[in-house]
């Protein structure tokens, strides 16, 4: 196991390095002038050249890359060319916001997706199956942007049940706390009213963000479970008199979950890195929105930091997914040992 982890960590470092190299190369393939954009049109060429020198943008590309990787190894993500803020400080605000949005979305997507998929497979061809398929297809085909706006219209404008955007009401002060995740920090502070408010602000964005994943998980679970339910060992389990519930949940579902976990790992990676649309609609100050504005200005330190974050998130998820295979399937565990 230790060898496995070491190998994966080394591989992860190489992947991050490769991704950074690609971003650096692309940033220089796209003809752009971020220093001029930051200083404004009335800055003289001398001022722009000086700013470029200060940021090291006039150094050879390979040297900029080496310097950046060196800084990164020391945990320094650089300074935004546009805002002048330290990127690590910006991320300290943005990442907890995204995590607060994505974690409940993962739980909702996994629980509802699997339940829907199982129900659809077990009662194949019945009303539940048809309903589940309709819900899945709708979930996958609804544009996130449109769906989010419809939710706002229904639950905010007409019913007044839930807020339209932001992490807290405008009149509320964010909780002081160690995580930056408002629900957790408010809970730690013992402010239950604030926990409830933070939770209310999460509901619509979480529904919007998790819908596609619910649909995907439900479809994959259904297909995979149907395949497994036709296998010999399931027939054997039934033949020896095992109840349907035990057959499905103890024998079939566990094996059917391997492709689900694989696909879900990818979906979580997409959610962690690309909740841009959801964050935009619901005025959620997360990393997707931060990266989007960085990209608009071709702000290289911001874009590179985002790439590092997404690469690390994907790599960590892949490791978790690999680890979960051996938990789900003893044969894999045996092969690994």
């Amino acid at each position: 196991m230790l060898r496995f982890l070491l190998r994966r960590t080394l591989f992860l470092a190489l992947v991050v390095l490769g991704a950074l190299a690609v971003v650096f190369a692309m940033a220089h393939v796209i003809p752009s002038d971020p220093a001029r954009a930051a200083l404004g049109q009335d800055a003289s060429q001398e001022q722009v050249d000086e700013y470029r020198r200060k940021l090291g943008l006039d150094d050879p590309l390979w040297w900029q890359f080496v310097r950046y990787v060196g800084r990164l190894a020391r945990g320094d993500l650089g300074v935004s060319i546009v805002t002048g803020n330290r990127v690590v400080d910006d991320l300290r605000d943005a990442v907890p916001a995204t995590v607060e949005l994505v974690l409940p979305s993962i739980v909702v997507a996994l629980v509802l997706g699997i339940l829907l998929g199982v129900a659809s497979a077990v009662w194949r061809g019945r009303a539940v199956d048809h309903l589940s398929r309709v819900v899945s297809i709708l979930g996958m085909s609804l544009p996130v942007f449109w769906f989010g706006l419809v939710l706002q219209l229904v639950f905010y404008k007409h019913l007044s049940w839930l807020p339209a955007g932001g992490r807290l009401p405008l009149t509320a002060m964010p909780p002081e706390g160690p995580t930056g995740i408002y629900t957790v920090d408010a809970l730690v502070a013992g402010d239950l009213g604030l926990v409830l408010e933070a939770f209310r602000h999460l509901v619509l964005p979480v529904i919007t963000l998790s819908t596609v994943s619910i649909a995907t998980v439900a479809r994959i679970t259904r297909a995979s479970l149907l395949d497994v339910l036709g296998r010999d060992y399931v027939r054997t389990a039934r033949a020896k008199g095992l109840g349907e519930r035990a057959t499905v949940y103890k024998h079939a579902l566990r094996n059917a979950l391997i492709p689900v976990v694989t696909i879900f790992g990818l979906r979580v990676g997409i959610m962690l890195g690309g909740a841009v649309l959801t964050e935009t609609i619901f005025a959620w100050p997360g990393i997707g929105r931060y990266a989007f504005y960085g990209l608009r200005q071709l702000d290289l330190p911001v874009v590179s930091a985002f790439v590092v974050y997404v690469t690390l998130a994907y790599a960590a998820l892949n490791m978790l997914v690999d680890a979960s295979y051996s938990f789900l399937d003893p044969r894999i565990r045996g092969a690994a040992s």
Binding site: Q152, I281, A283, R289
Partner: peptide, 16 residues
């Protein structure tokens, strides 16, 4: 001061 990039969200929140 809240940054609300999506125009329709901003409009809804003002109207409400």
């Amino acid at each position: 001061m809240l940054i609300i990039p999506e125009a329709s969200t901003q409009r809804l929140m003002l109207e409400k």
